[in-house]
């Protein structure tokens, strides 16, 4: 299915947010996630199914003012 990851079109067969994070190599990384504009805690990624056209955000610490 086709989803958006960080604003970019992305084809995946990941069934859950946790699977997607693992496929992208973020399983152990320091990242936080949101789906369709709402925060999804790391403990809830496994229980968060993905559907076509979902908009996933995966963010990490960055320099800020």
């Amino acid at each position: 299915m086709q989803i958006l990851v960080n604003g970019e079109p992305f084809a995946t067969d990941a069934r859950t947010l946790a699977e997607l994070c693992t496929m992208l190599g973020f399983a152990q990384a320091k990242v936080a996630t949101a789906v369709n504009g709402s925060f999804v805690a790391s403990a809830k990624r496994e229980a968060t199914p993905l559907a076509p056209k979902d908009e996933v955000e995966i963010v990490a610490p960055r320099q800020g003012g």
């Binding site: 960080n6 604003g7 992208l24 190599g25 973020f26 990384a29 320091k30 990242v31 936080a32 955000e57 995966i58 963010v59 990490a60 610490p61 960055r62 320099q63 800020g64 003012g65």
Partner: peptide, 22 residues
Amino acid sequence: VTVSLRRESARMRAGQGFWELI
């Protein structure tokens, strides 16, 4: 110190190194 969060690229993984520094 102030910090932010930004989209993390699976290839660049810029945030991981920055976090170690902080």
